[in-house]
Each structure stands twice: as C-alpha cells, then as structure tokens.
Design a protein around this nucleic acid. Sequence first.
DNA 1: CGTTCAGTTGAGTTGCTTCAACCCGTGTGG
DNA 2: CCACACGGGTTGAAGCAACTCAACTGAACG
Lengths: 228, 228
Amino acid sequence: MLKTYSMFDDILQRDQHAVAKGTILKSEGEESHSRMYVAGGWLAASKSLEDGEQQIIEFILPGETYDPTATDGKTSFLQIEALCDAVIVSIDKTSWAQLLRQDPELRKSERQREIAAQARQSERMLRLGRASAETRIAYVLIELCIRVSRQGTGFDSEFHVPFGQQQLGDFTGLSSVHVCRTLRRLNRAGVIRTGDHMDILIKDQHALAELAQVDIAALRDEITTDAA
Amino acid sequence: MLKTYSMFDDILQRDQHAVAKGTILKSEGEESHSRMYVAGGWLAASKSLEDGEQQIIEFILPGETYDPTATDGKTSFLQIEALCDAVIVSIDKTSWAQLLRQDPELRKSERQREIAAQARQSERMLRLGRASAETRIAYVLIELCIRVSRQGTGFDSEFHVPFGQQQLGDFTGLSSVHVCRTLRRLNRAGVIRTGDHMDILIKDQHALAELAQVDIAALRDEITTDAA
DNA sequence: CGTTCAGTTGAGTTGCTTCAACCCGTGTGG
DNA sequence: CCACACGGGTTGAAGCAACTCAACTGAACG
C-alpha cells in the first residue's frame, strides 16, 4: 500500500486536486478517459434506475485506484461521487499504461487489487440476493472494518465511515429506515455500539461474524491485498 | 470472438476435456492454479451461504475464459459448475501469462471482456438490490439474449438457456416459485413466450426493455466486446 | 406403469417498505 | 439570544411483494 503510494509521487505532485463532499466526479454515460487515484477521502461508485433508486456498487478508499471506463473506451458505466471532501489524481489512459509497463510491481499489485475487488463484490452479491437484512448489515460492517484497518494485523474493532444510513442502505439494498432498525437491534443485542456520525464499535466480533455468516480471518485474506 | 478462438487452437488440440452436466469443476476454497477456457457448454460461477442458499455470480459461455483464483494465488473464491455437458480447456497460470505476453490482441480482448463482465455485474447488482422481481427477470432475459446472440447485429429474440427456473432464481435472487409466477405473468401479458426446457421467445422487445428499465442498444454496447 | 423431477398454482405468512410523525443537533438570520 | 428551518436518525402503523409450504400436473424414463 505505502509502497504503491510512493510510485505515484511524481504524479501526485503535479495533478492532484481537492474535491468537496458530494461532488460527482463522473456520471453514467459521461466521457471518461482516465483512471483515478484516491489520495484522500472516500468515493462511491454507483448506478441508478430510471425511477431514482440507487445502488452503490463499490466504495473506493484512499490509496486505491479506479477506472469506470466502459468497453467503448469513451464513457463511464457508473457514477463516481465523493462521500466526503477528497483528494483525487486523474491519470490518463496512456500515462497509466506507461506506469504499468515500467513497473511490474505496480502491475502485479493492481492485478491483486482487482481480484480482491471481485471477491468482495461476489460476497456482496451473495448477500444481496440471498441473505436477510441483519446478515447484510453485519457483513458490510465487517468488510468495511477490515478495509479501514488494513494496516497491521488488527481488526481494530472501532472505526468510522464518512457517510450515513441512507448510503448504507444504498450499499446493502435496504431502505434507510430498515438500516436504522437493524443497527438499533444490533446495538440492543450488545454486538456493536454506534456513536455519533457513523462511528462503529464492534463489541462482539464473534457474534457479528456469526450473523454475517463469514469467517473473518478467511475474509481478510480474500478481500485484501496485503501479504500477511 | 472467432478470432480469439483461433488463438487457442494449439492448446485446444492438446488439453481439452469433456465434462458432464452437473460436474463441479471447482469448489470454494479448493486449489486453483489455472484459467479455464470454455470450448462448449455453459458454466455457472456461484457462492453459497452456510445455510445452503446459493447465488450465481456469473454465467460463463462458450468462447469465454474464467479464472476463479483468489488473491492468495492458490484457492478458488467461488464454485464453478457445468450447467450442461461442456468442453473445458485448463490453461495453467504460466502458460496463460505467456499467451498474453506473446499476443497483444489477446491481452486487449481479454481486458475488454473483463470490463464487459464488470459492467454486467454492476447492472445485476443494481437490480438485485433495488428492483422488483419483474424487472430482475426482464433484465436477465435481455442480458442472456444479447450474450447468446452475439454474432451478427441481431437481437435474435428467440433463444435457449441450458438450465431451469431454480437456477434463474439463484441468479436473480428469487425463489424458483416466484420465478415461475413472474415468467407466467410475462407470458400472459404477451411480452414473451416460454417453450419447453427454457426456450425463450421475446415477443415484445420494447415492453420487455421497459420492464427491465434498460435501453437494449446501450446495454449491448456495454456488456459486449464485439466492436459493432 | 410407476417413479421422478421440473414446473405450476393456491393459501397463508413474513420481512421489508412506505408513510408519517417526532426528536435532536446544527446552522442562520432577525 | 432566541426563533426557525433543516437534515439525519428513530419509531410506530399499515401495506405489500416475495417467501414457504403443500398439493397437483405433465413429461421423461426405466
């Protein structure tokens, strides 16, 4: 992670720019010719139905890159939005190709990241299609916790996510009302404790993993790129 | 497609082998060191919850390749099953890397296929999380129709899928009973006609697209790799 | 000619949604 | 400093879409 970061140093100097919370960096169907590197802040990649229903497909965290360019090489197939104030570097297609060519390490680590993203997405689809609200919420809390506390061996058990229950619903395919109810139930059961502004404390990791129907250690290996 | 196919000719001669319908080619967590090329038949890539609920993540059609190997480089993160009698070629990691190195065309077309798969998956997640049973079923019929009739400009409007309503449910996150009801409703409304053994005839393409909340032409470009 | 398996249909249940009210912390203008 | 509006979270009540369970049909097959 840190190693990869340093590879962008020269680009970081030149092309990084700050974006405010709520900024839409790319819309569905809009022109797209570049990969974005997130130097700070969280992004959400989402799709919407005509009736306005939104589904968040992926969160993009600091240190990760993402390219929403479709097969036509010209347009974005999903919408990218800043969930909080963020710092983004745009790397155009040819520069990116050059970076990959120059640096086999980068190529390999980006490949790993793609596989990890694919594994995460599969886990989510499974629960989106087949699991209860409780399982979906428990799972997403664990996934986010792992991704946030990627440094160190740790499952930090306490973390913060820079968005609200509405977005958690858009990610898990639930209404914000039901997200709220489910979170409250987990609170009352003593499994988690939620603080102000989406601070999450996992009080009973074992119980949460049970609810999420997941093995935390195995999941960490699967959805993470850090060699242990 | 045909062009890509010819690239595998030498390998096809050597290493292809037939598998019977229902064969599990890879299980979750099982050893996996190779990419598979599907010379004939359909595969399903799926994940299961502990309680046995299954979600099909992707169908793999003839002419496509797939590699379920996780970030550890050793195990598969999902299950691969033959939906009908099929012919598979296993290409080990190093051979595949060599093929990609030798042939920039192959590398490019595989990259395109990955992007198309990602776009399809996003469309499905959107509907899995946010759309009604009717929309999900309508969408999957259109997606499959496009993928099946990829040759030619055509939306063939009539096609066959080699699996039952149960699997359609596992793909759309619905019970087989509800798949049946929804299909019947579409039949009665005159939008489609279903024949024996999952033969599908799309009678009213426009109405189906409306239900699926999708623009067929745009979708074809997005989820397909054939330059028009 | 019985068995099996996929699809079909009805009846009853339930988990999640929608709608609506209310609370509370924050920002804002008189 | 208070009044007010505003947005996010919380809770209750009511509705409904999809689920489960169970029975039946019909085609395929030995």
